[in-house]
Structures are given as C-alpha cells and as structure tokens.
Design a protein around this nucleic acid. Sequence first.
DNA 1: TGGCGGTACTG
DNA 2: CAGTACC
DNA 3: GCCA
Length: 331
Amino acid sequence: MDKKDIVEVLERIGTMMEIKGENPFKIRAYSAGARTLQTMEEDLGDVIEEGRLGDIPGIGKALTEKIETLYATGELEFYNKLVASVPSGLMDMLDIPGLGGKKIKVLHEKLDVDSIETLTVACQEGRVAELKGFGKKTEEKILSGIKNREAYAARHLWWDAQSMVKKILPGLEELPEVERVEAAGSFRRGMETVGDLDFLVASSNPTPIMDWFTSMDGIVEVTAHGETKSSVRFEGGMQADLRVVPSEQFYFALHHFTGSKDHNVRMRQKALSLGLSLSEWGLRPEEEKDSSRKAGPVEANSEEDIFKALGLQYVPPSLREGMGEVEAAER
DNA sequence: TGGCGGTACTG
DNA sequence: CAGTACC
DNA sequence: GCCA
C-alpha cells in the first residue's frame, strides 16, 4: 500500500474512533500522524527500511507498527475490525454542522439512525427533538445541514474568496464603530483553497457591527450571533465568521485567527516554555487560571511584537502551518 | 505516568 | 454543564 | 495515541 492510501486509512481510523467515543487525544494522534506522513518528503519505503519511522515526531510505537503493516501487506486487522463495527453511514453524518462523534453515537444508539436518510426521517418525525441534549432547534439545524451539506463541506478557491472579501471588507470599514479590520484565517495565509472567511474587527462597541454583519445581503442563514462572534452563510454555501475584540487585543486576535491551528499550538507551547500563556486575548504570565478578557501585561501594536515577545523572528502568514516554522524562527 | 491550546456559542 | 466549533 |  502506498503512502497516500495509508494516510487515508489513518484518517479514517481517527474518524471512526470519534464516533466510537474514543479519547480525543488518541484521535488527534491518528490525524496528526496522517498529516505528518502526508507532508513527509522522503520516500516512505526508504524510511521504513532504515527503521526510522519511529524517529519522526508524532509517530510512536503504535503508529509505526500500523504503518509498516499497511505498507507491507495492505491489510490491518485493527482497521478491519473498526470498519466492521462502525456503520459507514455514520461517517457521512460528521459532515453535518453541529454533529460530532458524541451526538452521532446517541442518535445511533437511541434512534437506530445509521445513515443520512434514516436521520432525515427521524428529524421529520420529531424523534430527534425529544432526545436529551437535543431540541427543536437542533433538529431544524440538522435538516438544513443535510440539505446543504455539499455546500457546507466545499472549500472555495482563494480567488473566489477574495471577491467575497472585497465586497464585505469595505462595508465593515465604513461602520463608525470599527477601529480596525482585517480578513484572517486561511484566506490571509494565502491557501489555495479557503474553507470559510474570517473577519476580525477592533471596536469597543460590537453590537451594531454584529447586527450589520448578520444582516448583509445574500445571507441565507445566521448560524451564530453572539456578543463578540457571529457566523453567517451566504447563497452558494460560503460561510463567514466575524469576531470583534477591544483594540488592545487586536493583534493577538489577528494572530490567533490567522492560524493555522497547528501554528497556534506551537506558539502557545513556546509561550508556556517561557512561563507565559498566549491566547487570542493577550500574552500574560502563566500563573493562575485568570484568562479573563483583560489585556495582558504585554502590549502588541503589531504581530511582530508578539513574535518578538517570544524571542522569535517574524513569521509571515503564508508560513504559519505548524510545520517547523516556529522552531526555525528561534534565533 | 500524567498532560496534551485556549476560547465562544448553543441547548 | 456538555457538546461542538474555530483558528 | 505521543511525549517528556
């Protein structure tokens, strides 16, 4: 079995374990292993032959054995058993927004739901709303999620994302309450494809901004509308999130929402190693769990300041993929 | 053997 | 509060 | 699950 197929098997193992209600850290280990393998530049056969698979960060004893078995035989008992124990229809249900492993498990056990089709019927008959932890609103959200799941799951070309950004950004800039605004996320990182749009605004008066954002033209659904965070979906399936933060936290939040997740995790680990705690709200001494929405003692008037405070060289958005750039910036 | 990133919104 | 989602 |  070649590398591409093995990556897929590892990803599927992670997905199935999610539905089985496995330990989330274990699940993460599998998807991290899959990603590591995928981005490995060396030839997999060479690495295995030289017995160096386990030397790769994130690949330990268990994953090494499984990868080697798959490479040599194309079969894996552990995987086969998992496949046999998880109805394939349940895997599709993870694409529905609002449904994760836990809820899918409940739906399967209590209502015998085992596919999108049976889930649709269960919702239409109102059986889902009666479940503990579910409700009328959940039920409606599931039905609309099913109807639009292709649009939801689709990623968009950067170019298409940019044309959306060009429409939304000027509107935000014009609002008198908006002090600063940027598009963040994978769009800012310049990824070839963009999952959804992330806008970040600095303001001390979020409410009118949130209201404007959730009532733009072309919105078909407001999926969240809170005090500082809202999500909407447009015709055609593009999703956009808006966050509003106080201006002294703007660059921390911009860094955070530009991501990637892996990059953020490394940056936070780097902070912890210095006795500091980094979040979207600021950089503060680790100490107690006082991660309230207050600015930390460290000020940032640019993203550069954040890297500087951690003793790192500046890493531009396009390199923030958690693939060693943080380590490379030490010096 | 214990810890694993930190936060917002929903029901 | 637990679950889901986001980077 | 992996790692220190």
